[in-house]
Computed example of a mutant assay.
Amino acid sequence: MEEKVKNKISIPRYQQIAIEIASRISSGQYKVGEKIYARSSIASQYGVSSETARRAICILCDLEIVTSEKGSGVIIKSYENAVNFIKQYSKRQTIDTIKENLLKSIARQQKEMDTLNECLSDLIAASEHFRSMNPFMPFEVKITSECSYLNKTVSEIQFWQHTGATVLAIGRNGNVIKSPGPYAILLENDIIYFLSQDDSSQRVKEFLYPIK
């Protein structure tokens, strides 16, 4: 089941109202010294409770964008502070957008990795079934103490360059390490699951256990 990314930041309504009023000040719609709505009028205009309107005005007062006195309404105090507030809000929106896109990307990658692991599991199971029917087409090799590259990484021995085979997984201590990557170390008793270009394991066996 696909996991939904719940990272969309919801801005409280009172903050939205404060941002809208500050935007109108920074755009010149409201002038310094001008008296705008009383709290009750703001609540009515935006369709919110008087408490929500009060909190919006408190934000603007704390930032010294407006002043508010009982019976005097809300008076515009500073154009510069309104501009700075909007700039800070814009930066936050940019950061939030980047964060949201990043989390979505991680979720997509995780889904792709889950799909890859499922495919690898299916391939390993199918390979084992196929080998049980046709023993002349092996897709695995066991690492013993006689392996010429014991305790070395797949990248270090240039496994693919010498064999043309791709390591899909490593069986180790009853577990399967899927997509082990180039830095996986070959340990004694490991079982290497691989996909060969010519559907033969002979080249891999000759590389890991060269005739001396």
Rank of each mutant, 00 (worst) to 15 (best):
E112K: 13
C147F: 04
I211E: 13
S50A: 11
S132Y: 09
I75W: 01
K31E: 14
N117F: 08
E51W: 04
S196T: 07
C147W: 01
V48T: 07
V83S: 07
Y30A: 00
L150M: 10
P180F: 01
L168T: 00
Q29H: 11
A56H: 00
S41F: 03
I9E: 12
E156K: 11
Y30W: 09
R24Y: 07
L168C: 14
H129N: 12
S145T: 13
S196Y: 02
T163F: 02
L186I: 04
Q202L: 13
R92Q: 14
I11S: 05
S40E: 14
I98Q: 12
S49V: 07
Y79L: 09
N173V: 07
S200H: 02
F136R: 14
E20H: 13
I211D: 12
Y89H: 15
F159L: 10
K152Q: 15
D96L: 14
T166Y: 11
N101Y: 09
S145N: 13
I65W: 05
V176F: 04
S41H: 09
T115W: 06
Y30F: 15
I9P: 01
D190H: 02
I25C: 04
Y37G: 10
L195I: 04
I177V: 15
K4A: 10
I75G: 03
T153G: 07
L195M: 12
W160H: 13
N134T: 10
Y46P: 03
T163S: 04
R92V: 06
S145E: 15
